[in-house]
Simulated assay, not measured.
Amino acid sequence: MTSRVEHTDVGAYALGLLEDEDKEAFEAHLLFCASCRSELSELAGVASVLNGIGPVEDDRPPSPAPAIDMLRRKRAADRRTRRGTFVIGMAAAVTLVAGGLTVGTQLSGAEAPQVAQGSEHMAHMGPAEQFYADGRPIEGKGVDGITGGLVVESKGWGTHAALKLAGVEGPLECELISVSKSGERRVMTGWSVPPAGYGVPGSPDPLYMHGGSATQLKDVDHFEVVTSTGKKLLTVEA
């Protein structure tokens, strides 16, 4: 995958089968691909079950879980094929190794995770909203009743941010921009605001978005949300 990032590599990433270079490339790809982030969230449970399917304890040295080992070998054999084949093979391996295990239906009774009251919304959060909820938001200064903020973190490749935006009406095209202390401006992500808007009467849910900048967080002065016409909607100090 060093030549390009495949959407279907999400299965390999979930099981930790990507090489370091491919893993870094795919993590950067996740920032801008909502479909891959959603699929990764759905596969998280499958990955944990596969990692838990190990050999019966005996006196032999520990070895990788058979399902993971099988998938590693399959990954190596199919490296030049479409990644979709790997994802299909992963599902087949679960059935083969676990003797008919059906992920999501077998984890019932005493083994089923208990969902606390009031946590239903948490279970349905998207990656950007979850990251924002778990972090320490920096409130921004908006115009025309617009509110919002950012949760930011430093990465080896630059700065990762989750944006919350409310009180904005469409239709608009917007971008989240990082502005360095030297004045360099980098687009972190872009989106369209539908006519109904976000965080307004009739459309009360705010917008949550991921973004990434190659500028290191220590070098960022502030962030801006601007429209395609250049109007500044929100400013967030770093």
Rank of each mutant, 00 (worst) to 15 (best):
V115A: 14
A116T: 13
A116S: 15
G118C: 12
S119N: 15
H121M: 10
H121E: 15
P127W: 08
A128E: 00
E129V: 03
F131R: 04
A133E: 11
R136C: 09
R136P: 14
V143I: 03
D144C: 07
T147R: 06
G148I: 09
G148E: 04
G149E: 02
G149A: 02
L150K: 05
L150T: 13
V152G: 03
S154Q: 12
K155Y: 02
W157S: 11
A161V: 13
A162D: 04
A166H: 03
G167R: 01
G167N: 04
E169D: 05
E169Q: 08
G170T: 02
P171Y: 02
P171A: 10
L176H: 01
I177R: 06
S178D: 09
S180T: 06
K181G: 15
S182C: 06
E184G: 03
E184L: 11
R185V: 00
R186P: 03
V187Y: 06
M188Y: 01
M188T: 01
T189M: 00
G190Y: 08
W191Y: 11
W191G: 05
V193Y: 01
P194V: 01
P194H: 02
Y198T: 00
G199N: 07
G199L: 06
P204C: 07
L207T: 02
M209L: 10
H210P: 07
T215W: 00
L217V: 07
K218S: 12
D221M: 03
